[in-house]
């Protein structure tokens, strides 16, 4: 006990004025505080730059046109609700931007693409992870090799295929348009790879146990494997859906009938303008309202499924 007391009262004298351990510790603490403060300042600055386009997208859709054209940072609060209502009603009543219709098309294409892709992925990942067959390794290597080939190689021929099937034409009907948008994106090797990894982690004992119970492979897949892999499946679903929602290039090639347009195409091709003194003038505030309407559904999805999305992308990066 006594020894301890001595040690607690021990003061190490360092040459120089007031240089005790206590002071040194104090100094370290202050320095560390300053260091952390600088780190936070930098992070906040970077975060500000990252968020700025999102903020400005929303802020611009809350402004009147003259205000946006003066480079204002904040929307003025005077009559703000009238301005918002005005911008957004004009945007969705623009005949080239029928929001409900566009949203419906984008949703249908996204959900059907994702669901069919998920089904095909589950079946093939199961075969690759748990079943034995000749040529498995070779086949899987071929699958993986296709991943490094740029999509443009496929797009050129897929375009001719869709055109020759009659799906791509100015008088295409709804079903033809949807099929042209969906079919080329049902197979996705990366998701097969991801799900196969998850399936392989499920212990084989479960498989043997289900065999003893007299379950078939099919039952085992849907009753055991799929529920156990639900988090990977959600990740795949969300990532796939986001991809489909944001795609521009392929829809732009195959949608020739504007009745079945999707959001990102209509967003870029619609010119929001007003007739003023007999001259058509673009209205950027309405354009920004349209970008908000296109982006916000995805941002909401991201906020709800943040963990799944970030985990999926992280795994995508680690595979390399």
């Amino acid at each position: 006990m006594k020894e301890l007391e001595i040690t607690t009262h021990l003061t190490l004298i360092v040459p120089g004025k007031n240089r005790s351990v206590k002071n040194a510790e104090k100094r370290d603490k202050i320095l560390h505080g300053i260091f952390l403060a600088i780190v936070y300042i930098f992070i906040i600055i970077f975060a500000f730059v990252v968020l700025l386009p999102f903020y400005y997208m929303i802020a611009a859709s809350f402004m009147v046109e003259d205000q946006l054209n003066s480079g204002a940072f904040f929307p003025s609060l005077a009559n703000i609700f009238e301005t918002i209502a005005n911008n957004y009603t004009h945007t969705i009543s623009n005949p080239s931007f029928p929001y409900g219709e566009l949203l419906l098309n984008t949703l249908i294409v996204g959900i059907v693409t994702t669901a069919s892709s998920l089904l095909v992925t589950i079946l093939s990942a199961f075969a690759f992870a748990k079943l034995h067959f000749k040529g498995k390794e070779v086949l899987f290597t071929i699958f993986l090799a296709t991943m490094m080939i740029p999509g443009e190689m496929m797009a050129i021929t897929n375009f001719t295929t869709m055109a020759n099937l009659g799906f791509v034409s100015a008088d295409q009907n709804r079903l033809q348009t949807y099929l042209a948008l969906i079919l080329p994106f049902v197979s996705n090797v990366f998701y097969i790879y991801l799900l196969r990894q998850t399936f392989m982690q499920i212990p084989n004992e479960l498989y043997l146990a289900s065999k003893v119970d007299g379950k078939s492979d099919w039952q085992y897949l849907w009753k055991v494997m799929v529920p156990l892999s639900s988090s990977t499946l959600i990740t795949i679903f969300i990532m796939n859906f986001i991809e489909s929602w944001n795609s521009y290039v392929w829809p732009n090639l195959v949608i020739l009938n504007d009745d079945y347009n999707v959001l990102s195409i209509a967003l870029r091709s619609t010119t929001f303008q007003v007739l003023e003194h007999e001259v058509w003038r673009p209205v950027y505030t309405q354009q920004m309202a349209a970008t908000v309407l296109t982006t916000v559904p995805l941002l909401l999805l991201f906020i709800f499924f943040r963990k799944y999305i970030m985990r999926g992308v992280e795994r995508a990066g680690i595979k390399g």
């Binding site: 990252v50 700025l52 999102f54 997208m57 354009q287 296109t294 982006t295 941002l299 992308v313």
Partner: peptide
């Protein structure tokens, strides 16, 4: 926050950049 740009529509945010960098822009 730093992950946010990953999920956004490249077309949409590109249009916002175009507004920010317009001649009378922010």
């Amino acid at each position: 926050i730093f992950f946010l740009p990953y999920v956004t529509n490249t077309i949409a945010v590109g249009m916002v950049f175009a507004i920010i960098f317009s001649n009378t822009g922010l």
